[in-house]
């Protein structure tokens, strides 16, 4: 029996007059690994950010782990700690050490004792393979290391689903693989994840489903193999042609 973690039904979102999301329907079950791709400005970030309510939708229904998202909900903290978010720009807290970054949520939100929070933080730092950087400040780390710290920071809240918004787009090319390897590791361990990325190798390796978005709509959705080998929609074909040229 699988459990539905995220459900979007008929979701519409506008920025002023501009429609950023157009009738989005999406169901994510526990253990699902979904990759979202599409041209710049197609609404990928907007979609993923509505899932932990960093952005509000205007029409339709979004439920995360059984909680309905709406402007007056009282348990937004629960929704946000259940959904770990990894940003393109890392957004680590520059005034805290790596360890403090990881302990902040558990201590102040989960009210964990310090020692326990520290032990947990070290576990996750081991998992992203940079335990030796624990006492450094984010500004002293490479981009790839920072992004791995950001992933560990999200994991420390024990989320039910991880959301990645182009986690490797701001990285120098030689650092992309260390972050992807971390994410592949997570996927192997059964983490539910939604990942906006153009890394097709990653999509082929771990995704159950690939979603193509354009102009705020989900244009095509399929398992990786048919998605890449035999795209149905002409817009998907054009897009794949563009990114696979290199």
């Amino acid at each position: 029996m699988t459990k539905t973690v995220i459900e979007m039904v008929g979701v519409n979102k506008w920025y002023g007059d501009f429609q950023a999301l157009n009738n989005i329907n999406l169901k994510v079950e526990e253990g699902d690994r979904i990759v979202i791709c599409g041209p710049s400005g197609s609404g990928k970030s907007t979609l993923i950010r509505t899932l932990n309510y960093l952005e509000a939708h205007q029409e339709g229904r979004i439920t995360v782990d059984g909680t309905d998202l709406h402007p007056r909900m009282k348990n937004v903290t629960q929704v946000r700690t259940n959904t770990g978010m990894v940003f393109q720009q890392f957004n680590l807290f520059p005034h805290m050490t790596v360890l403090e970054n990881l302990m902040a949520g558990p201590i102040w939100v989960r009210k964990l004792p310090k020692a326990e929070a520290r032990a947990q933080a070290m576990t996750y730092l081991d998992r992203v393979r940079i335990p030796e950087q624990a006492d450094k400040y984010p500004g002293q780390l490479s981009g790839g290391q920072q992004q791995r710290v950001a992933i560990a920071r999200s994991l420390c809240m024990n989320p039910k689903v991880m959301l990645f918004d182009e986690p490797t787009s701001a990285l120098d090319p030689e650092m992309v693989s260390e972050v992807l390897d971390t994410m592949i590791g997570l996927a192997r361990d059964g983490m539910t994840m939604i990942c906006v990325t153009h890394e097709m190798g990653f999509a082929k390796a771990v995704a159950d489903r690939v979603i193509f978005m354009d102009q705020g709509e989900i244009v095509e959705e399929n398992a990786p193999k048919p998605f890449f080998d035999a795209p149905q929609n002409s817009r998907t074909k054009t897009f794949l042609g563009q990114i696979l040229q290199h």
């Binding site: 903290t77 700690t81 978010m85 720009q89 957004n91 680590l92 807290f93």
Partner: peptide, 26 residues
């Protein structure tokens, strides 16, 4: 940067914690 607010919210910090622990120190 607005990314700091978003990162703070995404680990479950409310307004007070975000202000005290993240925004003001920076």
């Amino acid at each position: 940067d607005k990314g700091q607010w978003e990162a703070s919210r995404s680990i479950g910090f409310g307004f007070g914690l975000t202000m005290r622990r993240i925004i003001l120190p920076q």
